[in-house]
Simulated scan of single mutants.
Amino acid sequence: MSTQGSIPGYEAGTWVIDSARSEVAFQVRMLGFMKTRGTFDAFEGTVVLADNPLDSSVNAVIQATSINTKHKRRDQDIQHAGYLDTGTYPTITFASTGVRTDGADFLVDGDLTALAVTKQSTLRLKVQGIETGADGRKTARFSATTEVSNKAIGVTKGSAFINDTSLVFLEIVATKQD
């Protein structure tokens, strides 16, 4: 899957993430068995598809204060020091450093920065489709997953109750820029 011909509709260029049609979600286990899920509702980014997909890149910025677990008090607690400390670190960023293949999937390696800590992270990405809409605009759809160690990025509170690993799920819709 290392050539553009293997991705139907593939077109090199700059694609802007449509946050209204995309989702940045996470899941963490509490007490080893309860799942807490949430989203970050404010984010932006660009995907640059190169002639060779393996030369492509992605950059994204998430507004940490936009966390939404559907529980207002928990959302407020998570924004304090020991968790995301959004007053000091208002954003979470991802900047890719390379793309490689793994069967039908792409692995997008990059630098994930949260709480002023930058850690290498790998997104397992699937191209869901690239199509031209009725308005003539090209849209690309991607799904990706990764795991993040809470301790590794500097989360120090709640370790007795919250598992160290957060699962991250991305459903991305991006529109090609002219």
Rank of each mutant, 00 (worst) to 15 (best):
S22R: 03
P8A: 14
G87S: 14
F43C: 04
G129Q: 05
H71P: 13
D41N: 05
H71D: 15
E11S: 09
T39P: 01
A95S: 11
Q128G: 14
P90G: 08
T91Y: 09
V16K: 09
V108E: 07
T88I: 15
L31D: 13
M30W: 10
H71R: 14
R100I: 13
I62E: 00
R73W: 09
L123S: 00
T91E: 10
D55V: 00
S96K: 10
A81T: 13
A50I: 06
D77E: 11
A95I: 03
S57C: 11
L107E: 04
P53F: 00
D55S: 02
A50M: 04
A95M: 04
Q79D: 14
V127Q: 04
S56K: 12
T118A: 02
V117M: 07
A81H: 13
G32W: 11
E23L: 11
I7M: 10
A50Y: 01
R21H: 11
I67L: 03
F26E: 05
D111F: 08
T39A: 09
Q63I: 07
N52M: 06
G32N: 10
E44P: 04
G110N: 12
I7W: 08
G32V: 12
Y10I: 01
F94H: 07
D41F: 00
T101F: 14
P53I: 00
V16H: 05
